[in-house]
Design a protein around this nucleic acid. Structure first.
Length: 266
DNA sequence: AAACACATCAACCGCCTGCTA
DNA sequence: TTAGCAGGCGGTTGATGTGTT
């Protein structure tokens, strides 16, 4: 501990630096993209503002937390109470679940799905299951050392894949001047933080034509519509994603899968 | 102009975790 | 092994700004 002569301890100084003084911090209104990304990440990660902030290097966890509490909560509540059946069911269904429960169930389901997939495809790869199980070994609440660490890493991996897929030509732009936070570094922030993510899935939440499933579906064009329709085929969304992940192609968004999966599970 | 309500956001608080002696 | 410490985190508070009556 050091004293600066100010009436602040090192803790306060650090906070002041990371939340206010640190260079590269963007102030002012959040863009639509940032807003959607926050909502997306909050749905995935829960109130883990530091983890969410690691995907928005120009914003601090405090900023995001404040923005969520003051703006986005209301916005989502509005949507929830609105006449939008699809959005309402989607948002409320996954928000009503406690985060830990959601994570465990999702991870368990992923595990099960992947196992089934490996077996179904008769993959003669002993590493397939073992490596996967190892990667999710932390999902057992009685053995995992840290829910946070395991889930953050997992989600990071998922997001990496999602961002790769959702990034379209011209959609990725450099974030010049941004500085990684200490927390971002320590948490293994994916390199994709410098990408402005494509967030079409969330247009369904915020777009003017998202009030009905039909509308949201018809708002999609070409390849996206095809993929949405494909997602309604017997293959579960998780399986689609797993296949997608293993093949390294496809454009199903993680958000759709996560939310749909949550709806299916509950 | 004053009073009040509401919104915003920096800072504080307490808990948890990891490190180290 | 363990106690003490520092740092990180999320939840909450309170000061300040802004809008409304």
């Amino acid at each position: 501990m050091f004293e600066t002569g100010l009436l602040r301890c090192s803790k306060s100084c650090r906070l002041r630096w990371t939340n206010y003084l640190r260079p590269g911090i963007k102030r002012g209104n959040f863009t639509d993209q940032e807003e959607k990304l926050i909502i997306h990440l909050q749905a995935l990660l829960g109130n883990r503002w530091a983890a969410i902030a690691s995907y928005l290097p120009e914003r601090t966890d405090n900023d995001i937390k404040n923005y969520w509490n003051t703006h986005l909560k209301k916005k989502l509540k509005k949507l929830e109470t609105g006449a939008d059946g699809l959005t309402t069911s989607r948002v409320s269904s996954h928000q009503s679940i406690s985060k830990g429960q959601w994570e465990r169930r999702l991870q368990t389901d992923i595990n099960t799905a992947k196992q089934a997939l490996c077996e179904a495809l008769s993959l003669e790869k002993p590493n397939c299951l073992s490596s996967f199980k190892a990667s999710f070994s932390g999902s057992n609440s009685s053995t995992r050392p840290s829910t946070y660490a395991s889930s953050t890493e997992n989600i990071s991996r998922l997001l990496e894949g999602w961002m790769r897929k959702s990034t379209r030509p011209g959609a990725c732009q450099a974030n010049s001047g941004s500085t990684q936070t200490d927390s971002a570094c320590s948490q293994g922030t994916p390199s994709a933080t410098n990408c402005t993510m494509s967030l079409e899935p969330l247009e369904q939440l915020f777009g003017p034509d998202s009030s009905t499933p039909e509308a949201s579906e018809t708002s999609l064009v070409g390849e996206e519509r095809k993929l949405v329709l494909e997602a309604q085929e017997p293959l579960s969304l998780i399986e689609s994603w797993l296949l997608d992940e293993s093949v390294g192609q496809g454009q199903l968004s993680l958000l759709d899968m996560a939310l749909d999966d949550a709806s299916e599970l509950f």
